[in-house]
Amino acid sequence: MTEIIVVTSGKGGVGKTTTSASLSSGLARRGKKVAVIDFDIGLRNLDLVMGCERRVVYDFVNVIHGDCTLKQALIKDKRIETLFVLAASQTRDKDALSAEGVRKVLDELIADGFDYIVCDSPAGIEKGAHLAMYFADRAIVVVNPEVSSVRDSDRILGLLASKTQKAEKGEGPVKEHLLLTRYSPRRVAAGEMMSVDDVKEILGIDVIGVIPESPDVLSASNAGTPVILNEASDVARAYEDAVGRLLGETIPLRFIEEPKKGFFARVFGG
């Protein structure tokens, strides 16, 4: 049974690609066979974050047009045996993706026995974003605790409830989860940032992960290594927890409270 997961947000720059790279790596590291697809046609980036940009020969649109086979276009990850990347095309043709073409590729992945297909959605609500969510069984809505991101997420939730195959065919709702990124417990404690509970209350859906703000995210993308593989980082632990929750484990949220300072640190400042 294959599960199709869309990583989406509406707003750009909130961490969709970082999240797609880390969740797919985390799932694959647990032995699942995973394909992660970049739906951002014209602005390919997942390959850079995954560190396989120099191995892209064929892309998603090439497969749809029949220029190559799916096998030729899937880039096998060098770190994790069961992880495959399908890069976005760099074409400027907005209509390069079609629902039929996407369906064909997904069906072939399902027939190939993939456990998870992670669809990295582009920002916005145009065609690429629409097709990334259209076939999804489950959606991860990446949100920053910030007004424009929260509002756009709500818009995306509306689209998930109406403009997906499941909604149109009446096959029940797409499972929806929030994943908060760039979370700063210190600023939440100071009343400068909305808390997990605030965002959850406004949007009304459950939280599958909270990723703390950290310089490790930039370092990881600089290096082309999904941040979940940086064992020393809290970000990696937070993503690993989210992977566990995706697989149905019950794991309490971490990194949502400010670390308590010891007496000396408080007196001398540290």
């Binding site: 007004v147 009343g191 400068e192 909305m194």
Partner: peptide, 9 residues
């Protein structure tokens, strides 16, 4: 400001 954001949203 977080409370203001929450109310507006």
């Amino acid at each position: 400001s977080a409370n203001i954001a929450k109310e507006r949203l």
